[in-house]
Write a protein that binds this DNA or RNA. Structure first.
Lengths: 119, 119
DNA sequence: ATTTACACTATACTTTTGTATACTACTATA
DNA sequence: TATAGTAGTATACAAAAGTATAGTGTAAAT
């Protein structure tokens, strides 16, 4: 239960709060992060599979965004020593729990819609 | 409790889920949305007050972002018939509840940090 | 011998986003 | 009469993000 104290501490300090917020925003920023995470929620995938799965993404963007996600600890990249090489991408534990953040965003959007329609 | 059914329905359909997600993402996108929302969390403010409160923001950006937030139903703009005019900006009900979305993002970030430090 | 598949990278370009600086119209104060 | 404060807008520019298209090296299949 040590993590709850950590969370409370961060919430009490606005500087730390903003820093933590930015960590999360970095995970989802850009046009392609959510499509990639969404696709990987259904299980691990290879580069070409992702490219085929995500409509209109270019290999340049896919490669760049996967690197970002890997650097942010949300995606793990595994290279298999085959010819030609096989590379698999999958969500880390944090990547999987990110689903709960997205759910809250969706919940807020639905509640917000209801509220603004009422007027 | 009708809204809970709404939320469940949206969560069951990936198209609706992504649309709702985008509503929320639009609220926070861009460099200045969060600083503005954060500043208004402490109470209603006038244009110049926001400009002084938010370091390095230009009036052009402040004006543009406030319009976005108003269009998204997160901020309300009130004009008072004084000379010179007084304009007040404040969070709507949705704007105030947005705080809970930010909290979840912060919680995820803290948990994510703990997890990645463990390795 | 040519095509196909893999996992990318390189280059040039367009679009979007944000910055810098100056300006508007009005009024009260020095 | 000059200056400062109100709430912005106008114009030009720079930087960041994304697109389009082609190409790399290796090996198996046709």
């Amino acid at each position: 239960m040590e993590i709850i104290n950590q969370i409370d501490e961060v919430k009490r300090c606005s500087v730390q709060y903003v820093l933590a917020l930015n960590d999360t925003l970095n995970v989802i920023n850009g046009k392609w992060k959510l499509p990639i995470i969404g696709s990987l929620m259904y299980g691990k995938k290879r580069f070409k599979e992702l490219e085929r799965n995500i409509d209109k993404i270019s290999p340049r963007m896919l490669s760049k965004e996967l690197k970002d996600l890997e650097n942010n600890g949300v995606v793990e990249r595994t290279v298999y020593n085959t010819t030609p090489v096989t590379v698999e991408y999958e969500l880390t534990e944090s990547g999987k729990t990110f689903h709960s953040v997205l759910d809250v965003m969706v919940e807020w959007a639905v509640e917000h819609r209801e509220r603004t329609l009422e007027l």
